[in-house]
């Protein structure tokens, strides 16, 4: 099974779950082991009931519906019409799809590592004690909790070539774009990428900060006594001990970047000439503008598959590099 390595917990509990309950030998238990295990299994399902009911009804079922729709021609008004794999074959030769696919990959490949590295750098910086640290932490985190849809309007305004503040300040130091940053095919993608990094870096920074604070001091002391320099301490103590956080952050960041939508929708609408159109943007355009919900579903399932495979690869790779202590 594909995701097996993900789920192989170091906890012994999982392994006991998969074996017959006879293996459970708690000496002090008052009841026979078999009954205990059976009851706990039932309890587990009881605990899961509300969640599973909701997930199945409101996510899994619609997902299956969407999968069905991806094999149909559907406009929301008329009944869906079965077209077999036509949507998928059309997609393979659709230049708009490949363009969006390329943009999505580009966005993810740049934004994910940049966000993760910046988050780590900020965390290292703000793990020091100095005046103004609380301000900096809050300031960096704040973008994460404001609405991207609205703040992207502020960004677009700031970047306006004629009355935007950032454009104005840049022009004072001699940086003058030939046209608006957002409408210039050379810079539009970079602009939405910057906003993407800006939005999430604070959240990942906090995850790293939390990780840094749980690293025991004596490990640094030991390294120092061994004569390790700053870089060596970072390389051999900090980084390995943050591998849990790195795995979490990079998986979350990758999933988020592959689904980039909000700021692109507000700032460029995928333009100029589709240079910033990502897959989710394309799904939106095919669905809500071209009224082709069947085709839009097909695109989104290709995206889901892509996200899934990439996340699994990432899990597998980073997991191997993980260190336990």
């Amino acid at each position: 099974m594909l995701p097996a390595p993900v789920l192989r917990e170091r906890h012994t509990m999982t392994t006991t779950a998969e074996r017959p309950a006879v293996k459970l030998p708690p000496p002090k238990r008052r009841r026979p082991a078999l009954r205990v295990s059976g009851r706990r299994s039932l309890t587990a399902w009881l605990f899961l009931t509300p969640t599973l009911l909701i997930l199945i009804a409101f996510t899994v079922y619609p997902m299956v519906q969407a999968l069905y729709l991806s094999f149909t021609d559907y406009n929301l008004i008329r009944a869906a019409e079965w077209v077999g794999i036509d949507n998928y074959t059309e997609l393979l030769s659709d230049s708009a799809f490949w363009n969006a696919f390329g943009n999505t990959v580009l966005y993810a490949v740049v934004v994910t590592p940049v966000t993760v590295v910046l988050a780590l750098a900020f965390a290292l910086m703000l793990n020091q004690a100095f005046h103004g640290r609380a301000f900096a932490r809050t300031a960096i985190f704040l973008p994460f909790i404001v609405s991207l849809g609205i703040i992207a309007i502020a960004w677009a305004f700031l970047l306006d070539p004629n009355i935007g503040l950032i454009s104005h300040w840049l022009s004072l130091v001699g940086i003058v774009p030939e046209q608006g940053w957002l409408s210039d095919p050379r810079y539009a993608m970079a602009a939405v990428m910057i906003v993407g990094v800006w939005k999430n870096v604070g959240f990942y920074m906090v995850i790293y900060l939390a990780g840094l604070q749980s690293i025991p001091v004596d490990m640094y002391e030991a390294a120092r006594l061994d004569g390790a320099g700053v870089w060596q301490r970072f390389r051999n103590v900090t980084l390995p001990l943050l591998s849990n956080q790195t795995l979490l952050v990079s998986v979350l960041a990758l999933i988020a970047t592959l689904q980039a939508f909000d700021q692109i929708y507000v700032m460029t609408r995928g333009g100029p000439f589709f240079r910033t159109e990502t897959l989710v943007m394309l799904v939106y355009r095919e669905g809500f503008q071209e009224l082709r919900f069947g085709y839009a579903s097909a695109i989104s399932f290709v995206l889901v598959l892509f996200v899934f495979i990439l996340s699994m690869v990432q899990f597998g790779y980073l997991r191997r590099k993980q260190v336990t202590y």
Binding site: D160, P161, N162, I163, E178, Q179, G180, L182, S183, D184, P272
Partner: peptide, 18 residues
């Protein structure tokens, strides 16, 4: 004209006497 403007950008450009 400025390249790459939306309708709203064009309105702003005229409104700001640019």
């Amino acid at each position: 004209t400025q390249i790459g403007m939306s309708g709203a950008d064009a309105d702003k450009l005229f409104q700001t006497q640019k």
